[in-house]
């Protein structure tokens, strides 16, 4: 089935809950109202015409005002695919019903989306951070999330950049003082047993 046919099927069943059907050759998707999210997913899984057994991926996209939650579904028996999309109510209220009851596969994907994007899946049995440590603050994939300055004494990239520049300037100042003399090769050159050995040739 094509995305248009699946969309028509869903429209017939769910009426105005299906907001948009896009059958684009790049990425065909069906936009669903958030309150029908789980019902549409269950229908797609159980209906003999669609039989979407495999939940390939759950993710979210940050569109500043709101988040789009995107699910990619595949049917191995029918060999067709569709993507479902829904909006979260707003940026501050980033919630979406969880699909773990429909496909257990959604469990880790939703945890990851919560961890990195900060979309709260209501009804998820165990919504914890997965990739980042438990005490991490913020959700790094949000567009307004900057680089952290420090984490448990480990300097962040922003802090390292500043320090590097400072070190570099000190070093340059030192070099200027060393008048005339040839500084010699870089300290690393010639400090390893293989240095100076032509590769591939036995000495």
């Amino acid at each position: 089935m094509t995305v248009t046919e699946i969309g028509a099927l869903l429209k017939e069943r769910f009426g105005e809950k299906i907001l948009e059907v896009v059958d684009d050759e790049r990425h065909g998707h069906v936009r669903v109202a958030a309150d029908a999210w789980v019902a549409v997913a269950t229908f797609l899984r159980d209906d003999p015409r669609t039989r979407m057994e495999m939940c390939h991926d759950v993710t979210a996209v940050d569109w500043i005002e709101h988040f789009d939650v995107v699910v990619h579904l595949y049917s191995l028996a029918k060999k067709h695919k569709v993507a479902l999309k829904t909006k979260t109510p707003s940026r501050d209220d980033a919630t979406c019903p969880s699909l773990t009851g429909v496909w257990p596969a959604a469990d880790w994907h939703e945890r990851e989306t919560w961890d990195l994007m900060g979309v709260r899946f209501t009804g998820h049995p165990d919504l914890r951070r997965i990739l980042l440590p438990e005490d991490w603050e913020g959700h790094p994939l949000r567009k307004d999330e900057g680089n952290p300055l420090e984490y448990h004494g480990i300097p962040g990239i922003a802090a390292i950049r500043g320090a590097e520049e400072r070190l570099r300037e000190e070093e340059l100042a030192k070099k200027k003082q060393r008048a005339g003399g040839h500084p010699g090769p870089h300290p690393a050159v010639g400090s390893h047993p293989t240095d100076g050995v032509t590769p591939g040739v036995k000495p």
Binding site: H27, H29, H72, A83
Partner: peptide, 17 residues
């Protein structure tokens, strides 16, 4: 524009969205 492309990797299906 959006794409979701998958391929059969040695360990399973890798996909880029």
């Amino acid at each position: 524009a959006e794409v979701y492309v998958r391929s059969e990797n040695p360990r399973g299906e890798l996909a880029f969205y």
